[in-house]
Design a protein around this nucleic acid. Structure first.
Lengths: 201, 201
DNA sequence: GTCTATAGCCTGATAGAC
DNA sequence: GTCTATCAGGCTATAGAC
């Protein structure tokens, strides 16, 4: 049972995690320094280490807290809903998350590109279980002729990559598009893509 | 004019760049150490620094050498070829590069996710110019009814994200798919996706 | 060209006063 | 709970012998 926290403790812990999200997502684990995080959180370095025992502990707290949030949109795919609508809604939710939570997306991207040293276990258990489940659902929908027959795993990978790309490769996209907001045309482009891929009529 | 190099110099420089690609792509710039690179290249740390003046210099040499390679598949898209075939061939080439050169892909991914501090200029000039050019081509093809009307920039972004995902998020994909080789079904999935998106008939 | 040794900096973490 | 001061280790880069 965790010790009860005072309001100050809650506030400081939250400020640290918020600052750490900024710094870790922008520089990666190794590139981030405790000093940067402490300053961004408005604390001294030793004071930060009073709340979290190590740099690693902050990073772990961030990642494990985020995984749940990251899986939520896929969990929300309803087996009893209209198949095409369910998938399109999932895609839209995921794209919206890239828009609203780009730092969280980049935190994961940093971790996974470098081999997921701190989150591999969760990927091969929690994530895999959920994906296996939803892939079965998509396969059934295909076999029942409710959507086109596609490889369910690659369909999900494509959704992740297309949507997260707008957060993770944001700099590159803006370098190419200039002032135009990528999120203006992206939703329609991606919806059209999946509508054409999955429609059976 | 660069000084002529002996065979030993050429060999050592090449070994360093090869080793650096391994280490930088796996750990990012900050996460990599000169020691790791030197050991992987079979040299001592000071000896490595005899060939490259700094860690930064190795990284820069890698990145600038790679950008050309990375743009080549897009450059190869022929304005006079069959539009759908040209785009599908580009997609196939790009996917093949993720399979053959995953370290190069992850090197770029690491750099761009963290804001492209060392390569932003090249993105906003060389890359942007090329993309502007090819986007115009794709727009023309659409307006002439040779392919479906799609947002050319988002089409290109989608190709990058879908193909590079198999290299950059390799660990996650394998955690989910287990022993199955992702590259077995990916080419067909992706080709089908773009065929359905772009066909006009 | 290659090595050993080391300077000098940065950073994670701790000690101890308040 | 928060601070100043500081230690200890790791890292980039250089010095200097061979």
């Amino acid at each position: 049972m965790p010790a009860p926290q005072t309001r100050i403790q809650q506030k400081n812990r939250a400020a640290i995690l918020e600052a750490a999200l900024d710094v870790f997502s922008a520089h990666g684990f190794r590139g981030a320094t405790i000093d940067q995080i402490a300053i961004a959180a408005g604390l001294s370095k030793p004071n930060l280490l009073y709340y979290f025992t190590s740099k690693e502990a902050i990073h772990t707290a961030l990642l494990s807290g985020l995984l749940e949030t990251w899986l939520a949109p896929l969990k929300g795919m309803d087996p009893n809903g209209d198949p095409l609508a369910e998938i399109l809604a999932y895609v839209a939710r995921k794209l919206q998350m890239s828009r609203d939570y780009p730092r969280e997306s980049r935190l994961f991207a940093n971790e996974i590109v470098q081999g997921a040293p701190r989150i591999y276990l969760a990927l091969s258990t929690d994530l895999k279980d959920l994906v296996d489940d939803k892939a079965g659902l998509i396969r059934n929908w295909g076999e029942q002729g409710k959507i086109a027959l596609v490889h369910p795993y690659h369909l999900l990978f494509s959704i992740w990559s297309l949507t997260q790309h707008y957060a993770d490769f944001d700099v590159q996209i803006r370098a190419v598009m200039g002032d135009e907001d990528p999120f203006e045309a992206a939703p329609e482009f991606i919806e059209t893509l999946y509508r054409k891929l999955l429609s059976v009529s």
